[in-house]
Design a protein around this nucleic acid. Structure first.
Lengths: 204, 204
DNA sequence: GTACGATATGGAGGGCCACCCCGTTTTGCA
DNA sequence: TGCAAAACGGGGTGGCCCTCCATATCGTAC
């Protein structure tokens, strides 16, 4: 999310060189984060982008801001998915499907979890464009529907669910067999530990 | 867990000054971690303990090792609790109670989560004394009993449960109202999201 | 096409940190 | 009491994040 894009006329449309560097930094950050996770060195990102560290800091005053910019597109995809699923005839299934999609995105984009969770507190509350706000709004509808259809407990908030999803992904992030684990834990979370009658083979 | 204590005769019983410094570092680390969390500066810990930073590194080659040493006692408490609960007539309740206790310890000891989770992979597998191994073993019995009593699904491993508990605590660690959240999420996890009939007031 | 002010840049430097080398001190045993 | 082995810690190295400010670049008005 370039602060002032060319298409949306803002106070100052952002100079060409500034925009170029902005994009370079974003690309470099995406690479670095994919390799080293959300803790990737900001200096190395600047180095990769071929800009000075000061430039990086000017464009992204905090690591959080950079993460949000890097993942903005992916979060938009998730929001779009939520919008589509809102038409699903089975609200419970829609919610579960969407949470699964969120989880999949998070595990395959190291750092996304951090990006989604943080910013709930420290960032400017006026900006509804933070990853956190976007995803929360997108999920709220799905949960509401599921709740009204009586396939979700009414005392559960979308924040709860997203926190759990993120928590699972975070916890599993450094496990070797990540993705597989997430699926199990996620369904486990959704169905609960209590008995269910049916049986399956024991793992680990 | 001093590598070689005075009571348990080891290869070399550890010199007096070494033991003294070891204990000082441990105490200083406990303080620092309580204040600043698991990311506390190692140099500051050394400074507090009145030793050189090299000494700290000699005793604890990695941050992980230090965390494990600091939390070793608390983990032992949890293991003891597990042993007691093994006598509980209601295995399902025992398991839930214990997981709650684990969560409470984790939230009230910043860094414990990290200590419990890590070390599953990077530490010497021969050493069964890591926090991770200790807690896993302690919980396995409780889960087994619950499973046999048909109050826990057989396809759930203790690793799953502990991962989830830790995940919740990690995710909530930087929330302002931490402890309260953990309770909700934990019970949510244990009962699952699926409808249950009963109602409660909606939060957030 | 040019000149000029606003804007953006990046290298240098400060403060902090983890980690290691190696000369010095302490310890415990004979 | 002497002495080798063990432990110590100051200081060096390299990395990190972040800021300052002299310099280079851009967009525009003429």
């Amino acid at each position: 999310m370039p602060p002032a894009s060319r298409t949306t006329p803002h106070p100052r449309p952002m100079r060409a060189d500034a925009r170029r560097n902005y994009d370079r930094i974003l690309a470099a950050a995406a690479e670095a984060i994919a390799e080293h996770g959300a803790e990737a060195s900001l200096e190395e990102i600047a180095r990769r982008a071929g800009v000075g560290s000061a430039t990086l800091h000017r464009h992204f005053p905090s690591r959080q801001k950079l993460l949000e910019a890097v993942f903005h597109d992916k979060v938009e995809v998730l929001c779009a998915t939520a919008a589509e699923l809102a038409a699903d005839p089975d609200p419970g299934h829609a919610l579960a499907t969407w949470l699964g999609a969120v989880a999949r995105h998070v595990v395959s984009n190291r750092g996304l979890a951090t990006s989604l969770m943080l910013g709930a507190h420290d960032s400017d509350p006026a900006v509804g464009a933070t990853c956190h706000a976007m995803i929360t709004n997108a999920g709220a509808n799905l949960l509401d529907r599921a709740c009204r259809a009586n396939t979700a407990r009414p005392d559960v908030s979308i924040t709860d669910l997203l926190t759990l999803v993120n928590a699972i992904c975070l916890a599993v992030e450094q496990e070797p067999d990540g993705a597989a684990q997430v699926d199990r834990l996620l369904t486990l979370m959704l169905t609960g530990v209590r008995p269910a009658g049916e049986t399956a083979n024991r793992r680990r």
